[in-house]
Simulated scan of single mutants.
Amino acid sequence: MTDEHAQRFSELRPLLFTIAYEILGSATESDDVLQDSYLRWAQVDLTQVRDVKSYLASLVTRQALNALRAGARRREEYIGPWLPEPLLLTEQDASSDVVLAESVSMAMLVVLETLGPDERAVFVLRDVFGFDYDEIAAAIGKTEAAARQVAHRARGHVQARRPRYTPVAPAESARITAEFMTAAAGGDLTTVLSMLAPDVVWTADSGGKASAARRPIVGADKVARTVIGLLRQGAQLPDIRVELGVCNSAPAVLLYSADHLEGVFTFEIVDGLITNFYAMRNPDKLAAVAAAREITRGADV
């Protein structure tokens, strides 16, 4: 490993992490992929690399696909709904890059989870990051024509399932989240209901390792009562603490008992109403929230 190897990789790390995370839906696995890719990069003769960004993106994509395929059985046997690991972000203003904000949203990552591995990688590389088809073909080990076919198929699949996405100004998100939490913590059912879309959905991921609903809860009344009940239970935890943050480019509530993170609850807001809650209770996945991450679709190299 030379200083130049390290510098080039470091410059591209936020981009490479974002690619891996969107393919895997796991910050923990993405870190592992980047570590393995870094070690492989150390053995590369830089005089033979014409485009460092393209080369490293291909390398990370291949390693991410290996990890995705290796974990397929674990996901099939997962207890209850599977959600991506929450991604605590350093950048709170999603409006600066709407494509990036949507691509890491919980709703989009759940849609991407329904794609096959190659479809997911191709969609991410082409529609999110704008790589050329020859670069994508090299990354997935297919011909350029095949990569175009995979992209067309993946795009159609995503378009058919893509939820409506409208970026919300950070100040507005923070206001709605704070008002909702105040009303729910106070047991104000009327106010809570007024802030929910009629078909709002509550989806919880515990992996069978924490108390959580094992099926999505649908409808304003059911979701409102669920949230109020959970906050009432949470208030009984020792040294309870609530923090507001941004996860996956959306407002989020982080619930702590003393210094232990009990859950991350992400809000999805459309037209001023909350349309989805994503509740992460799996302690294995909560470990990824320990540090804020920088994500990007570009790179200055």
Score class of each variant (00 low, 15 high):
Ala138Ser: 13
Gly229Arg: 14
Asp3Pro: 00
Lys285Tyr: 04
Val52Leu: 04
Thr18Ile: 00
Asp32Cys: 00
Thr266Gly: 02
Gln159Met: 14
Gln48Cys: 08
Ala185His: 06
Ala213Asn: 10
Thr266Gln: 14
Ile228Tyr: 15
Tyr165Glu: 00
Asp300Trp: 12
Leu273His: 12
Asp3Arg: 11
Thr143Cys: 01
Pro81Gly: 08
Glu179His: 13
Arg40Trp: 01
Val98Ile: 10
His157Leu: 12
Ala288Trp: 07
Pro170Ile: 02
Thr190Gly: 06
Leu34Glu: 08
Asp284Asn: 13
Ala20Thr: 04
Val253Tyr: 07
Gly71Tyr: 05
Thr275Pro: 09
Asp239Gly: 03
Phe267Asn: 03
Ser54Thr: 15
Gly208Tyr: 11
Ile228Trp: 14
Val99Arg: 14
Val242Trp: 15
Val33Glu: 08
Asp239Leu: 05
Asp132Thr: 08
Ala174Tyr: 13
Met1Leu: 14
Gln233Ala: 11
Val218Thr: 14
Ala139Phe: 02
Pro167Arg: 05
Phe180Ala: 09
Val104Ser: 09
Leu189Pro: 01
Ala174Asn: 08
Ser37Cys: 03
His260Ala: 06
Gln233Tyr: 12
Ala252Ile: 10
His5Gln: 13
Leu125Met: 10
Phe129Asp: 06
Ser105Asn: 04
Ala160Arg: 13
Ala67Cys: 03
Ala290Cys: 01
Ala174Thr: 10
Gln149Asn: 15
Ala292Asp: 04
Gly116Cys: 02
Ala20His: 08
Glu102Pro: 03
Ala72Leu: 09
Pro283Met: 13
Arg162Thr: 07
Phe267Ile: 00
Pro86Cys: 02
Glu172Asp: 15
Val270Glu: 15
Leu87Trp: 00
Thr296Ile: 01
Asp3Ile: 02
Thr275Ser: 09
Ile274Arg: 10
Ala183Asp: 11
Gly186Lys: 11
Arg148Cys: 01
